[in-house]
Design a protein around this nucleic acid. Structure first.
Lengths: 347, 347
DNA sequence: CATGATTGCAAAAACGGTTTGCTCTCATGA
DNA sequence: TCATGAGAGCAAACCGTTTTTGCAATCATG
């Protein structure tokens, strides 16, 4: 196993000092453009990779970025949806590696553990009000970036989807497919994601003269939570003809509940969920989803925190990641009276 | 913000050289016991924490342990159960920090990213045959520890539960509660976890003269997968009166399917799942589970890989983590003819 | 009592980068 | 002609450990 090529080898090969190599590659110091390019060329030719550990030591950093994905709800550790987090985390991990940082899990980690290994920065996914990890790091002066905003704190550095825009869009989508009475299965209002979506829903109802029907799901936010919330809705005297579930697992629970209660999906009941997932794709009918683009969220968060750690200012402290509606079977177009239905009408 | 106390401060305070401090704290060199203890006392009094970055640089390490939790099944990225992985990962993260390592996600990470930041070791959770990440690291001579064994390779370093022991135990548990016909909802035979459980089930059936009823669930291994597998079982002419699902999410799907098909749980249908979870605890009836103790698995894996990285030999290359049956409502004791039922008999 | 082995500790050399300060050239203006 | 200053690059210090080497002092041995 050949030893890794270091800065000294590059310097020797390029006929300059290691200082010059360092400066050339990091865009620092005062060098002629010619030297700079030459060094870069040699470094590339030799396949030089700066040693992150040495760089961190010199820079007084650990090279570690914490990722906190815990939501403490009623004292319980709850992870809403893994597909979402997995995508976000994987993308963030790769992005961090690319910038010479390593991403470590910071949720569930006891405070005492921080002492052994200092983190340079922290990314909090879906922060809740008075998040203890967030508070701890902020007070230590360690940069923090959140995905989703900190409730009650519009400032700070964050990446977010625009649920005020996306929620009406998906409600309109349901309407366009013939829905008249759209219910919302929400999550407890502990994240801005939850409160934004809820508020956008309420506003949409008022603007469109619709009745607001909201059920907040049990805190574990699983299929069962969605199932039970849906049962409540479908057993009303005036059940909804469409449901927007604020998480895909709850939407799948809604699908199961609709089947159990004898509601044909999408003919009698349309269902859409927030967050796209493999499970939703596999469901029958497949699930219409609002894709949140967690990969991009993760990458943007890493980019921002890395900039902050390196002492720079991100071009914009707030980044909005676009969403996209993915229409699938669970909201397939209703057949209207004007268009004779292909299948025999249900009794 | 006060500067961190370093080895020099400790040396000065203790009236010795930094060499002596390093040796004393790491149990190396030749020092009198008195000096050793004195240095330790001073270090502790000053709250000295060795700088992991410097230590890694000197030791030629990165201080990074990769955690690979991906299962590539039919080209799809599938995570079976997040509650399990979350517990394992959290415990492993803390354990790693305690030993001066940081745990980073290695699943989904493109190979190119390895080049920027070398990992000192790798933990693969539930490896599959010919796992590409596993192969890559092994061939580079980087230590690898797996949780669950590598299919077809009984050697190597691994932590595992003993499913050959646990599976009969939970089947016996179901029998003790009155089950006569126990079905298995399995996962695709890509991990030793899957094949061990399956094989243990088959053996148990033969030993007890029972019919083997197995359904392998759809590859996403979610509630829906369990739901559909259960439907297949319950719609047989001779449906089972108990189901052991090899993942808790599938067990919850079984619960929903049982409800949908009008099977009373646990009276007509007992259900047990592998892996304990919050969701299972919340289900109605609550779900009997085989607890796998993922926290301990994570800790043991970190301990073993850290030992290997530091050049030592773990006391035992194979570690069995004990399991435990947690009886809950879904296998509550059937009322037998001899004991008059408390509730009115069902028509 | 010289010799060699053992013990206890310190000085110095890595580890692989970044950063600071200095030197050397050369053009410019007084 | 000589300060002045800017441009280009280098040497050395530094980051905080671990590890190797070196050197006394002590102790046992022949």
């Amino acid at each position: 196993m050949r030893r890794q090529v270091g800065i000294r080898e590059v310097a020797a090969e390029a006929g300059v000092s290691i200082t010059t190599v360092s400066h050339a590659l990091n865009g620092k110091g005062r060098l002629s453009n010619q030297t700079r390019e030459h060094v870069k060329e040699v470094a590339h030719r030799l396949g030089y990779r700066p040693n992150a550990v040495a760089r961190n030591l010199a820079g007084g950093r650990s090279g570690l970025i914490g990722l906190s994905v815990a939501q403490m709800i009623e004292g319980q550790f709850a992870i809403a949806d893994f597909a979402y987090y997995a995508q976000l985390m994987n993308a963030a991990t790769v992005a961090a590696f690319d910038r010479g940082f390593a991403l470590v899990l910071a949720s569930g980690t006891k405070e005492s553990a921080w002492n052994n290994l200092m983190l340079d920065g922290l990314i909090v996914v879906d922060p809740i009000r008075d998040d203890p990890v967030w508070a701890e790091f902020s007070s230590r002066g360690i940069p923090v970036v959140t995905t989703g905003r900190v409730p009650g704190d519009p400032d700070g550095y964050w990446i977010d989807n625009d649920h005020f825009e996306a929620t009406p869009a998906i409600l309109d989508h349901l309407c366009a497919r013939g829905a008249e009475r759209i219910a919302l299965i929400g999550t407890p209002p502990v994240t801005t994601y939850a409160t934004d979506s809820r508020e956008a829903y309420e506003r949409w109802c008022i603007r469109n003269g619709k009745e607001s029907m909201v059920v907040i799901a049990r805190h574990d936010l699983t299929e069962v939570a969605g199932y039970e919330a849906t049962l409540k809705l479908l057993r009303r005297d005036d059940p909804p003809d469409a449901i927007y579930a604020m998480l895909d697992r709850m939407a799948i629970g809604a699908l199961l509940a609709g089947r159990a209660e004898g509601f044909a999906v999408p003919r009698q009941l349309q269902i859409a969920g927030c967050t796209d997932s493999e499970a939703g794709r596999l469901a029958r009918p497949s699930l219409t989803a609002l894709a949140l683009n967690p990969e991009q969220i993760g990458r943007e968060a890493v980019s921002m925190i890395a900039t902050l750690i390196e002492g720079g200012q991100p071009p914009n402290p707030h980044v909005i990641v676009p969403t996209k509606i993915i229409p699938r079977g669970s909201t397939r177009k209703k057949t209207f009276a004007a268009t004779p239905p292909l299948a025999a009408p249900q009794p």
